[in-house]
Amino acid sequence: MRHTPSYIVTDPEEVKRLIRANPWATIVSNTAQGLIASHYPVMLDENAEGISVVSHVGRPDDRALELGEHEVMIIIQGPHGYVSPSWYDGKPAVPTWNHVTAHLYGTPEILSDDENWRVLSELVSHFEHEFPEPNLLEDNEEYGRRIMSGTVGFRMHVTRFEARAKLSQGKSPEIVENVMSELDHGAHYSQPDLAAEMRRVHDS
């Protein structure tokens, strides 16, 4: 990740917030067969010290990723989007891409079947609680446990992270306001979630 001091995020709480809001992650592993990437939802382990995530992969992804054998990188991609130079002040400028991203590093720990069941149940509950009548894994436990046998759960304590929030820092307040307005409700390339991230940075 490019090291631009004004964009670097060092606060672990901000990284936790990013994980909570953006659970769809990319797992990258440097294996004996070369780089392998897979995509799965992750959930923050709220009871752990520091930053720790839990998830699962479908078999045989655990073997392809060499899960538990060495360090992997998990990429969390937050809101992102195109920023046009036409949203600036008319002076010569080039387009850019604003984004919030975190790279998490650690060696996954393989979960027992009981722990995997608990994590899968919590993951389903986390998303199903939005519905008036949640469809929980434990409501169909026999079927759920049969499906679970095709998965491998893991916990990864994050030993280090690199995070970046590139959100038009260094631009004038007028330009920042115009970019946020375009992202909020412009006719082209609107990204309201990205505008909200910009407000978090520029209003603080």
Results as ranks from 00 to 15, higher is better:
residue 12 P to C: 10
residue 48 A to L: 02
residue 176 V to G: 05
residue 20 R to A: 03
residue 69 E to T: 09
residue 178 N to I: 02
residue 101 T to R: 14
residue 61 D to H: 12
residue 41 P to M: 14
residue 41 P to R: 15
residue 168 S to Y: 04
residue 68 G to W: 11
residue 160 R to E: 13
residue 106 G to A: 09
residue 91 K to A: 12
residue 88 Y to M: 06
residue 162 E to Y: 08
residue 19 I to M: 06
residue 44 L to G: 04
residue 83 V to P: 03
residue 140 N to T: 10
residue 2 R to C: 01
residue 197 E to T: 00
residue 30 N to H: 12
residue 120 L to K: 07
residue 176 V to M: 04
residue 125 S to L: 04
residue 166 K to F: 05
residue 201 V to N: 01
residue 176 V to T: 12
residue 183 L to P: 02
residue 40 Y to L: 13
residue 73 M to F: 03
residue 202 H to S: 03
residue 12 P to R: 08
residue 36 I to M: 10
residue 36 I to A: 11
residue 67 L to V: 05
residue 132 P to K: 15
residue 61 D to M: 11
residue 172 S to A: 10
residue 173 P to H: 15
residue 166 K to G: 03
residue 8 I to D: 07
residue 151 T to M: 14
residue 151 T to V: 07
residue 121 S to T: 15
residue 185 H to W: 05
residue 58 G to D: 15
residue 180 M to K: 14
residue 20 R to K: 13
residue 180 M to N: 04
residue 177 E to C: 01
residue 99 H to R: 09
residue 46 E to L: 02
residue 69 E to Y: 04
residue 137 L to T: 08
residue 202 H to P: 02
residue 153 G to V: 03
residue 192 P to E: 14
residue 77 Q to H: 12
residue 128 E to V: 07
residue 112 S to M: 09
residue 176 V to W: 06
residue 57 V to G: 07
residue 172 S to R: 07
residue 143 Y to D: 14
residue 196 A to W: 02
residue 81 G to K: 02
residue 77 Q to T: 08
residue 202 H to I: 01
residue 51 I to L: 10
residue 165 A to V: 01
residue 95 P to E: 09
residue 135 N to K: 09
residue 64 A to E: 13
residue 7 Y to E: 15
residue 122 E to G: 01
residue 29 S to F: 03
residue 184 D to R: 15
residue 174 E to Q: 14
residue 122 E to D: 15
residue 71 E to N: 08
